[in-house]
Design a protein around this nucleic acid. Structure first.
Lengths: 300, 300
DNA sequence: GATATATTATGCAAGAAATGCATAACGTGA
DNA sequence: TCACGTTATGCATTTCTTGCATAATATATC
């Protein structure tokens, strides 16, 4: 199963021209050679990618899928290489930050703004990812800082010597849903009914999903929930909650606006909430002037 | 700049063994051949990846970064191929829908709501993912339907016989930014200034990133843009745009509320916009009663 | 349905590239 | 400085790819 990236680019050319001869010309080889390279690619992948039975040729179903991946892989390679080649001049003055998805959408831009002129000259690259990937990115030096949640269940275990962190904000996980016409929550947690409560859930792998699972587990009352919707990201649950599809536990931070406007309401009192922090992490093994400077200022 | 994936796997072996000879053995080639392959890789990348001046050898700083990318690319390739070669089973009574991240947050819940009672009895599981993964999920039967964008550049090439689609909505990609106090855009595309325009960009692999790239490429005017921020998802750009950090091309659909409230404004006229559709796809190769029924009703 | 035209596949010889083997050059530790 | 382990280089051989000419196949037109 060995590839050459040439083959991938060949395949992209073939997909766009829908013709072996045109694509061959585009790739500066003769048509027979080109045909053979596509054949090599198909052998390497192990499936037929092109339907040659009629002209102009079509991609097979598998070919169409592979096209998407090929595009992604080729662009990833190009990106990697150009970034690597321009490493010494550029890389030093760009601050790369990984943030949990839900923070990237709302809190991160606000926070950045609150830093004011501190970050005006700095070029920032934010990558939104799940918490697990963010930790890897931080450890591998792919990012300089990481902005994630930290909950009282200590779901995230990082050595504070290697990965020191700054506390940025206190918020909490709260159960919310759409209000009825009187502004009261559509669903209740404490007054049980015969019907199970429609539950908007995080997928099991998601960081906040673990938090919610632990919250529910530690609570004395066992709820009857029916998962009607499942997604990895808080923003997905928000959209569904706004439409009245059920109850979702959300970081309060993500729904400030919706709560203020009365489009979402908290379901019950404090007993169904759990505190949640936003923390900023760095890795002491990485030594980048811009990071050190920013960290110093943030600690005050 | 041509690669063989062998080289990438060679590099992974070298990184883990920290020895040319050990790695060569692991890869079933002689040490000289192996050394030459690593050299080829370094030439292709254009950067020295290994520090050979002492033993045991170390990766250079660039090598360590490349290692991360190489891992990712190799695993992506393996994943792609194994996914392409075999299909996986799925549940019968739950409708699994994959949606592009930006649609999952806003449009999908609205759309689901608009279907009304049609979907009340159905258990729905939404998974937000990037377009590439969504296409794979659709083909592999990991999901039953896929809700993604479709642009006029035909970035997504899917055979309508195997992957029929329903047109759900017309929207467009429009450049937006924060308004000034008079409600006028902070930045202008048509009146050039000395300063390059701060640009909130999609990462190159992202689907909408491709759309924007093609839009900029096909436009007669070449803009001077300075990428100050980069992320894979539209919602991330929105947050930054709201804070006035630059211009972002966004699906209008994602920012209806912000436009209505005047928190974001379109940067210029139609010439910098491109139409964008929201489409719902299914795969005819998968036969699931619940999907067939819903599809039938949707087509009316 | 037969033929003209366009497109893709195959046979073959020439050329390019990768490999293994032997060995030289280099780095490490005594 | 020497002995040992590790990596680089020279060369003959093998393997693979390419280009050219041409056969096979598909589409369009009469």
């Amino acid at each position: 199963m060995d590839f050459e990236t040439r083959w991938l680019e060949d395949f992209l050319a073939l997909a766009s021209t829908q013709s072996f001869s045109k694509a061959a010309e585009k790739r500066h080889v003769t048509q027979p050679a080109f045909s053979r390279r596509i054949k090599s690619l198909e052998e390497a992948v192990g499936v037929l990618l092109v339907d040659r039975t009629r002209t102009p040729i079509n991609l097979t179903a598998e070919g169409q899928l592979f096209l998407i991946s090929a595009r992604s892989i080729v662009s990833q390679l190009h990106e990697t290489i150009t970034r690597l080649r321009g490493l010494s001049p550029h890389q030093q003055d760009i601050l790369e930050v990984a943030a949990a998805h839900s923070l990237a959408f709302t809190f991160f831009p606000d926070w950045l703004n609150s830093l004011g002129k501190l970050t005006d000259e700095i070029s920032i690259r934010l990558v939104a990812m799940n918490v697990e990937d963010a930790v890897h990115a931080l450890r591998d030096g792919q990012c300089d800082m990481m902005q994630v949640y930290y909950d009282s269940y200590a779901t995230l275990q990082l050595d504070p010597v290697i990965f020191p962190s700054i506390h940025l904000l206190d918020t909490s996980m709260i159960p919310v849903c759409k209000p009825d016409l009187d502004g009261q929550p559509l669903y209740s947690l404490n007054s049980p009914s015969d019907e199970p409560i429609p539950f908007l859930s995080y997928t099991s792998g998601a960081f906040l999903g673990r938090t919610v699972r632990l919250l529910l587990k530690h609570h004395p009352i066992r709820l009857r929930l029916k998962t009607v919707y499942e997604t990895a990201m808080a923003e997905g649950l928000k959209g569904m909650a706004l439409q009245g599809h059920g109850i979702a536990w959300m970081p309060k931070l993500c729904i400030e606006r919706e709560l203020a406007e009365g489009r979402l309401v908290a379901c019950e009192g404090d007993e169904w909430q759990t505190p949640l922090e936003v923390r900023l992490y760095r890795c002491t093994l990485v030594n980048k002037p811009i990071v050190n400077a920013l960290w110093k200022k943030l600690k005050t």
